[in-house]
Amino acid sequence: MNRGTHPAVRALAGIGDAWDGMVHAVRRTPIRVREAVAGRLPRRIGVVAGAVMLLLYLVSIGDVAVSLSGRWADAGAVQLAVDGLFRSRAPYLFEPVAAVYLGAHLAVFFSPVNLLLGLVIAVLVAANIAMAVHASHTACARPGYTRVLGVLPAFLLGFACCAPTFVLALGAGGAAAVLPVLLPLRPVFYPLALLLLLGALVWSTHRLESLAPADQPAPADWPAADGGPRHRSN
């Protein structure tokens, strides 16, 4: 029985315990991620999610553009401006060095740095989705959407950091309401998105670590070759 320890002391100790739990989860995250992507299904879904994320990111910052009216019909194939490579237009948004017109309806304004920044986000999203799919195959799986919901703020932030088009998509009225709030936060959006995505990975790991051994997800290449679920214990 505890002696009459002050609630504050217990609270502090609780924080200390939580810190230990987090450090442990951080250490285990690479292992759990590797375990997740080893499975065919989580890996495939993760890659698709990451690819979609990358495309959405590039569209939202205007590096990939679609014209329904086909206004690039007369454009040349490629346009170059290489000295813009590391010139930044806004926090985490860089100048394109080449414009490539793929037919009359699709244009890519290519910035290697923007692509790299988008890839980092996309990879983290892929890892998160793979973990979610992997973890959903547990005996006491909660509905999958709670994990996806956790990743959602990171998606939105990833857009908002450099996406006038995203804000514009809210419509003129929405923009007026949202811009005064978003603008001062702009330099923070991209790192915040990274932090949230990494945090979500660590959190998923923490949840898996706290499951009893019998409830752990099945090892890699689930489902079994005969298409049925693997038998875990006994």
């Binding site: 029985m1 505890n2 320890t5 002391v9 502090l12 100790a13 200390g16 230990d20």
Partner: peptide
């Protein structure tokens, strides 16, 4: 670390918590 029933939360955990907060 589960606090042992007769000793309460360990001093170390408490200090750790304080450090994290700070």
């Amino acid at each position: 670390m589960i606090p042992t029933p007769d000793r309460g939360p360990s001093r170390r955990q408490m200090l750790k918590g304080a450090a994290v907060l700070g």
